[in-house]
Measured scan of single mutants.
Amino acid sequence: NTKMVRFKKGDSVGLRLAGGNDVGIFVAGIQEGTSAEQEGLQEGDQILKVNTQDFRGLVREDAVLYLLEIPKGEMVTILAQSRADVYRDILACGR
C-alpha cells in the first residue's frame, strides 16, 4: 500500500510532520490547496523517502529542515505508505 506522489514545490511543501526516530515520519496535517493535497497525501501517511533522502530513522527536525531546503519550483517526489493505525498510536503516546 505504498504510493508515490510527485509535484513542483510551491512556497512550501504543505505538510505538517509528526513522529521521528524509531517510529518514522508521518503526515500530521496537509495545507489545503497544496500540490501535496491534490496528489493524494493524507494525514497518517508515513513518509518513507523524499527525492533521494530516506526518511526512515530521521528525527522530525531533520525531516522538516530537508523539506524546507528544497528550493521553490523544484520537483518533489515522495514515497509514502498509509499507516493510519500506527499514526493513531503515535498520537496517543504524544509523540
Rank of each mutant, 00 (worst) to 15 (best):
G29H: 11
D62K: 12
F7P: 00
E74K: 08
S12H: 13
L65H: 14
A80V: 11
V23Y: 08
N51C: 00
V59H: 15
I30E: 03
R95P: 15
L41A: 00
M4Q: 11
T52R: 10
Q38S: 12
G73C: 06
F7C: 00
G19C: 00
V27N: 03
R83N: 12
L15E: 08
Q81K: 12
R56Y: 07
T2D: 09
D89V: 03
I47T: 07
I90L: 14
D54Y: 07
D62W: 00
D22E: 12
K9C: 04
M4D: 07
E69H: 12
S12F: 11
D62H: 12
F55H: 00
I70F: 06
Q31C: 14
G14N: 04
N51G: 06
K3W: 01
L68D: 15
R56M: 08
E37N: 05
Q38M: 14
L17N: 08
C93V: 13
K49Y: 07
L41M: 09
I25Q: 06
I47K: 01
L65Q: 15
E74W: 04
L65C: 13
Q53R: 12
A18W: 13
D22K: 11
L79N: 04
Q81Y: 08
I47Q: 09
L58H: 03
R88K: 14
I70Q: 04
E74Q: 12
N1D: 10
Q53M: 13
K8T: 11
Q53V: 12
N1M: 10
F55Q: 03
G24L: 02
L79I: 14
V64A: 13
G94D: 14
T2H: 09
L58K: 07
I47H: 10
F26T: 09
A18Y: 09
M75K: 05
L79C: 09
G44Y: 01
I30R: 05
P71G: 00
L68T: 15
M75C: 07
A63S: 00
Y87G: 10
R6N: 07
I30M: 07
G44E: 08
A18V: 14
A84L: 15
S12V: 10
T34Y: 07
G44K: 01
M4S: 07
N1H: 07
Q42V: 09
L65M: 14
A28Y: 06
F26A: 08
I90H: 13
E37S: 12
M4E: 12
I25P: 06
N21Q: 15
Y87M: 10
E43R: 08
Q46F: 01
R6S: 11
I47W: 00
F55A: 01
M75W: 15
M75R: 05
R83Y: 04
K8C: 10
C93F: 14
V59F: 10
D62A: 13
R56P: 04
T2F: 15
L67D: 02
L65R: 15
Q42R: 14
E61H: 05
I47F: 10
L67G: 02
G24W: 01
V27E: 02
S35K: 12
G29P: 01
G33S: 07
E74G: 03
Q38R: 13
D85P: 12
G14A: 02
V64I: 14
L67N: 07
T2M: 14
I78W: 01
V76Q: 01
L41V: 07
Y66T: 06
I70C: 00
N51K: 03
R60F: 14
F7A: 01
G94A: 11
G14I: 01
V64Q: 15
I30A: 02
F7Y: 06
N21W: 13
L67I: 00
F55L: 03
L17W: 01
G20I: 02
L17P: 06
L67F: 08
N51V: 04
V76C: 05
F7K: 09
V23R: 10
T2I: 15
R88C: 09
V13E: 08
N1P: 00
V5L: 05
A63Q: 05
Q46D: 02
G24T: 05
A36V: 10
I78E: 01
E61S: 08
V86D: 13
V64P: 02
F55P: 08
F26R: 05
V5D: 05
A92L: 13
G10A: 08
T52Q: 13
D22T: 07
I47G: 04
I78F: 00
Q31S: 13
A80D: 02
G57A: 07
L68F: 09
R88H: 13
G40V: 04
V64K: 12
Q81F: 02
K9F: 04
T34C: 15
A28G: 07
G20F: 06
G24K: 09
F7I: 03
